[in-house]
């Protein structure tokens, strides 16, 4: 186990490490290079770094234009100002022509903490998932993030990559048989009574919830669904069939994101109880990351409660 790192830090390092191997990689930022960690790339490859200033919409358009000239642009800003402010630029200038632009939304979810609701984007996963042909990726730890960045460099098409602000434990490097592939979820731990399908920082919490429930004799399967779109429906279906109940968990609104995707799919293909764990259709608020997560019930304990509920609903 390699300790703790924020996925944004792993991302910033990955860009630098991959710069030489991928000369077409160019990095754009909107005056947040410190926070998004693209400052590392800017220092290493100044000629391939473009600070667009506080003008996210223009940054998306510039990236779209660059991608038509054979470059591989990664745009960077907070999730709020990428998926939120620039939703339409991403839709019309990047996704509609299916251009090879990677839109990176840092500081996603509520664990942004102190900055409060204006900077806590809980809608990004749902917004980006709505766009036809848009891939949506939210890695769970630093190791997975590193692999996701290279996989996205090799993927031709538009994608949204969500980064988290706070440092979290790295664990996928120690998972037996772990292999990262876009669009393929990872079974982190097996179980038989209920499956938690989690994304981002909630995967680590799902592992803790699994331990809490094991003490009660409830066997929990945990899936790391790093790619929300396209959803790994095969793995979702298998989990629903084999465990008979599903709980989704994401640091995002329960409306339309991972929970929405799983519920929509299972309702039509294998209707088992699905309980969504996330932020309940409300704005965030200021506080330390830990306090905010606690306030909104994004904890292993609250997730365990959702699992108990799902199990109780089984016929």
């Amino acid at each position: 186990m390699a300790g703790k790192i924020a996925t944004r830090a792993a991302y910033g390092k990955a860009l630098v490490d991959l710069a030489e191997k991928y000369p077409e990689l160019v990095v754009l930022d909107a005056d947040l290079a410190q926070a998004t960690q693209t400052k590392l790339f800017a220092a290493a490859c100044p000629a391939r770094f473009f600070d667009c200033g506080i003008a996210e919409n223009n940054m998306m358009g510039i990236a779209a234009g660059m991608s038509t000239c054979g470059l591989k642009p990664f745009t960077n800003t907070f999730a709020m100002f990428a998926a939120g402010r620039s939703y339409e630029q991403i839709r019309n200038s990047i996704a509609y022509p299916h251009l090879n632009v990677k839109v990176v939304g840092s500081h996603g979810g509520i664990s942004v903490g102190e900055d409060g609701a204006t900077h806590q984007c809980t809608e990004d996963l749902a917004l980006m998932r709505q766009i036809p042909g848009m891939m949506v990726v939210c890695p769970c730890d630093g190791n997975e993030m590193t692999q996701a960045v290279e996989a996205l460099l090799n993927y031709e098409g538009p994608a949204y990559l969500r980064l988290a602000r706070s440092a979290t434990e790295i664990f996928t490097d120690e998972l037996e048989g772990y292999r990262f592939e876009l669009g393929k979820g990872v079974t982190v731990a097996d179980g038989s009574a209920v499956t938690i399908i989690a994304t981002g920082i909630m995967v680590a919490m799902a592992r803790k919830a699994r331990e809490l429930l094991a003490a009660e004799g409830i066997s929990v399967r945990v899936i790391d669904m790093h790619t929300i779109k396209p959803l790994d429906t095969e793995l979702v279906l298998k989990a629903a069939r084999e465990t008979g109940a599903v709980v989704t968990s994401e640091e995002a609104s329960v409306l339309g994101g991972l929970g929405g995707a799983v519920a929509e799919y299972l309702a039509e293909n294998c209707p088992v109880p699905v309980v969504r764990h996330g932020v309940n259709d409300t704005f965030g608020r200021s506080g330390t990351a830990a306090a905010v997560l606690e306030h909104f019930g994004l904890t292993p304990e609250a997730l365990a409660d959702k699992c108990r509920r799902a199990v109780a609903m089984k016929p």
Binding site: N57, G61, I62, G65, M66, C69, G70, S93
Partner: peptide
């Protein structure tokens, strides 16, 4: 060379193309 229609967006993409030419 670029899909357009939503007003205000095209010029940014042209900037991206011109910037790419300089870069390359």
């Amino acid at each position: 060379d670029m899909s357009t229609g939503s007003l205000g967006q095209g010029l940014s993409t042209a900037v991206g193309m011109a910037l790419s030419a300089k870069h390359q």
